[in-house]
Design a protein around this nucleic acid. Structure first.
Length: 582
RNA sequence: GGGCCAGUAGCUCAACGGAUAGAGCAACGGCCUUCUAAGCCGUAGGUUGGGGGUUCGAGUCCCUCCUGGCUCGCCA
C-alpha cells in the first residue's frame, strides 16, 4: 500500500513524484521550476491527476513538449515500479500539447479509503503548522443594536474560517472587538434616556439626530427602570450607569444571537480598555518620538503619505479627542504584541464598505514596525434583503431592519449558515426572505443533508438485518469496489485534505459548499443508478463489505465537512408528505 | 474626478494561467412494488460587458473603454 501518514494530500504527493522525476530525468536543469503545476483534469479520459511539466521544461531546454514528456513518463514509470508497498499509478500517458496524465492505481485508492478509517473524524486534519498563530477578528458589531443579516454573514464566514484554520493545525484565537468607547454608544445612551423620559410621562422622547429609534431602545429603558429604579433625572446625571447597562444588555443580546447561529468567540475585547490602560497614548508617544506625527490646525496627524496610504491621517482631533483610527492602531498593535507575539497573522473580517480603510490600517501596521502582509483583511459584502421582490431599506438608527434572529426563526440556522457560505465573501448576496420562507424545502442545504440521512438509513437497514458494520477496509473487501462511480467517490473523498489546506490559504470557505454539493451529487447518482441492481446491501459478501466501508467512509467525510460548516448532519430526514408523522 | 471590487446560461453563482467554460434555481420531457423521489435521467440555454495586447495556451495577467456596487471626514 502507498504509505499514508498523518494528513495526506494527493496534490503534494504527486508533486513530489513529478519533481523527483524531473530531477532524475534532467539532473542539470537549474531553472526555476515553479511553473510546474499539478492539475485535476476535467475529463475522466485525462486521468486523475496531471501536470504541465513537459511544457515548462520544453521551454527551458528549447525542446519539443512531446520529447520532454516521453522522457519524463519513462522516469515516472520507473519510480512507479520502485515505489515500496505498491504502485501509485496504473497508467501514465502523454496528452497534447504537453500534459502528462496519471491514472490512480487501485493500491492508491485503497490507501485513501484506508486513511479515512484510520483518521476517522480527524480525516483532513493536520498538525503540521502547529504553533503558527492566527488572531481572527470578526463581527465586532457596535453594541448599539441587534445583529442584522450582514453581521450574520461575517459571523458565519469568520466562524468557518476559524474552524478550518484550527483543523489545519493553526493556533487560532477568535475575537470580537467591542466599540464601547465611541460616539455611537454615547448616542445610544442619549436615546435610552429619552425613552426613559417618555415612559415616565415627562415629555415626548426627543431622539437626537444620530440617535437610535428602534423598539429595542425602549426595551432597554424599561429594563433599566425596572432593574435599577433609575429615573429620568438621575439617568441624565449618571450616564455611566446607563451606558454600562445598555452596552451589557446589547452585548448579551448579541451573544445570544451568535449562540443561536452557532458562532463562538474566545475573547471580547473592549475598546475602552485601550484608553484605560493608556495604550493609545503609548502609541502616540512613540510615534512622536520617532517623528511620525505632526500638528496642524490644532490636530495631530500621522504621516501616511508615501507609505501605503495617500493622505496623512488625524489621530487626535482639535477638540482633544482621539479618532477611531487612533484606538484602532493601538488595538492592532496589541494583537501583534499579545502573549509575546503568539500571533503571526492578524485577520480582520470587515464589511466591504470599509475597504477604503485598508491602506490606512496597513500603513499603520508598517509604522508600528510590523509587516503589513501579516495583517489580512477579508471583506464581506453587505447582504441585500429582499421582501416582496423589493430590497428592504435597512437603517440601524431608524430602527427599521430585519434582525438576524428573525431570519433564523424564518429559515432556520442550517439554511442561514449554508446560504452565507454558498458564495465567497466579496460577492454581493441577495437574501430573499419570501423565497427562503416559501421554498425552504428547496434549499440547497437539504440536498446536502439528505445524502447524509440516506447513508444513515442504509446503515440502519444493515443493522436491522443483523449485518455487522466494518471498522475498516481490508484488501479483500476492497476488491468488491469496482464500479466507476464507487472509485470516483473514493477519489473525491481523497481530495478533502487538499481542500482544507486550500481553504486555510485562500480563506474562502465557500469551496466547502461546492465540495459537499459535488460529493453528494456523486452519491445520489450512484444510489439512484444502482438501487435496483447493485445495492449497497448486496448478497455478495465481498461487495457488501466493500460498499459498507465506502459509505461509512463517506459518512465520515461528510460529517467532518458539516462540522466545519457548523451545519447539522441529520441521521434521518422526514420526506415530503410525512410531516404528520410522530 | 481619484481609489477598490465586480460584470460568465433567463436568475444566483463556480472554475491554483491549462485541454471541449461548469453547478443550482427557473423552463420543458421522463423515472417511485425494491437501501428515503428533499432524489435521479434527459432537453434547451454562452462571442465569459466591448476592443486591443502578453504566450505554446487567457474567463483568469496587462492596457483601454462601457456598466454596476462601495468608498474618498478632525464619523465610527
Amino acid at each position: 500500500m502507498v504509505c499514508f501518514r498523518k494528513v495526506f494530500m494527493i496534490r503534494n504527493y504527486y508533486k513530489k513524484k513529478i519533481l523527483q522525476a524531473v530531477q532524475e530525468t534532467f539532473p542539470d536543469i537549474l531553472s526555476d521550476l515553479s511553473g510546474i503545476d499539478i492539475l485535476k483534469p476535467r475529463k475522466p479520459e485525462w486521468g486523475d491527476i496531471s501536470t504541465n511539466a513537459p511544457m515548462i521544461i520544453a521551454k527551458v531546454l528549447k525542446k519539443r513538449p512531446d520529447e520532454t514528456a516521453s522522457l519524463l513518463i519513462k522516469t515516472l514509470n520507473d519510480i512507479n515500479h520502485r515505489t515500496s508497498g505498491g504502485h501509485f499509478a496504473s497508467r501514465i500517458e502523454f496528452a497534447a500539447p504537453g500534459f502528462i496524465n496519471i491514472f490512480f492505481s487501485r493500491e492508491f485508492m485503497f490507501g485513501i479509503l484506508n486513511s479515512i478509517f484510520e483518521s476517522g473524524y480527524r480525516f483532513g486534519y493536520s498538525d503540521e503548522k502547529k504553533g503558527e498563530g492566527y488572531l481572527v477578528e470578526y463581527v465586532s458589531a457596535n453594541p448599539t443594536g441587534p445583529l442584522h443579516i450582514g453581521h450574520g454573514r461575517g459571523a458565519v464566514l469568520g466562524d468557518v474560517i476559524c474552524r478550518v484554520l484550527k483543523c489545519c493545525g493553526y493556533d487560532v484565537l477568535r475575537e470580537f472587538y467591542v466599540n464601547d468607547a465611541g460616539a455611537q454608544v454615547k448616542n445610544l445612551v442619549l436615546s435610552v434616556i429619552e425613552r426613559i423620559k417618555e415612559i415616565e410621562g415627562k415629555g415626548e422622547a426627543n431622539i437626537p439626530e444620530d440617535g437610535y429609534k428602534g423598539e429595542y431602545v425602549r426595551e432597554i429603558a424599561q429594563r433599566l427602570i425596572l432593574e435599577t429604579k433609575i429615573g429620568y433625572e438621575s439617568a441624565l446625571e449618571n450616564q455611566a450607569v446607563v451606558r454600562e447597562f445598555a452596552v451589557n444588555y446589547m452585548l448579551d443580546r448579541i451573544k445570544s444571537t451568535l449562540g443561536t447561529l452557532g458562532v463562538e468567540f474566545d475573547n471580547f475585547f473592549s475598546e475602552s480598555i485601550l484608553f484605560d490602560r493608556g495604550m493609545v497614548e503609548r502609541c502616540i508617544r512613540e510615534f512622536e518620538s520617532e517623528s511620525k506625527v505632526f500638528e496642524k490646525d490644532g490636530a495631530l496627524f500621522l504621516r501616511m503619505e508615501n507609505n501605503d496610504d495617500d493622505k496623512d491621517r488625524v489621530l487626535r482631533k482639535s477638540n482633544g479627542y482621539y479618532t477611531y483610527f487612533a484606538s484602532d492602531i493601538a488595538y492592532h498593535r496589541d494583537k501583534f504584541e499579545r502573549e509575546n507575539g503568539r500571533f503571526q497573522k492578524i485577520i480582520d473580517i470587515w464589511g466591504s464598505d470599509h475597504h477604503g480603510y485598508i491602506p490606512r490600517m496597513k500603513g499603520a501596521v508598517r509604522l508600528l514596525g510590523y509587516n503589513p502582509e501579516n495583517f489580512i483583511v477579508i471583506l464581506v459584502q453587505m447582504v441585500r434583503v429582499l421582501k416582496d421582490g423589493k430590497p428592504v431599506k435597512m437603517s440601524k438608527r431608524e430602527g427599521d431592519f430585519i434582525t438576524l434572529d428573525e431570519i433564523m426563526q424564518d429559515v432556520g440556522r442550517d439554511a442561514t449558515r449554508y446560504t452565507f457560505l454558498m458564495r465567497k465573501g466579496d460577492a454581493q448576496l441577495d437574501f430573499d426572505i419570501d423565497i427562503l420562507k416559501s421554498q425552504s424545502l428547496n434549499n440547497p442545504v437539504y440536498y446536502a443533508q439528505y445524502g447524509y440521512a440516506r447513508i444513515c438509513s442504509i446503515l440502519r437497514k444493515a443493522a436491522e438485518a443483523g449485518i455487522g458494520l466494518p471498522a475498516g477496509i481490508s484488501k479483500e473487501d476492497f476488491d468488491g469496489l469496482v464500479l466507476s462511480e464507487e472509485l470516483d467517490i473514493i477519489k473525491k473523498m481523497g481530495e478533502f485534505p487538499d481542500l482544507l489546506d486550500n481553504i486555510s490559504k485562500s480563506l474562502e470557505p465557500h469551496l466547502l459548499v461546492y465540495y459537499i454539493q459535488e460529493l453528494q451529487a456523486m452519491f445520489h447518482q450512484y444510489y439512484t443508478k444502482y438501487k435496483k441492481t447493485e445495492k449497497v446491501l448486496s448478497d455478495d459478501p465481498v461487495k457488501l463489505n466493500g460498499r459498507l466501508a465506502l459509505i461509512i467512509a463517506l459518512k465520515t467525510v461528510l460529517k467532518n465537512a458539516f462540522d466545519l460548516m457548523g451545519v447539522d448532519a441529520p441521521e434521518r430526514m422526514s420526506m415530503k408528505g410525512d410531516e404528520d408523522e410522530e
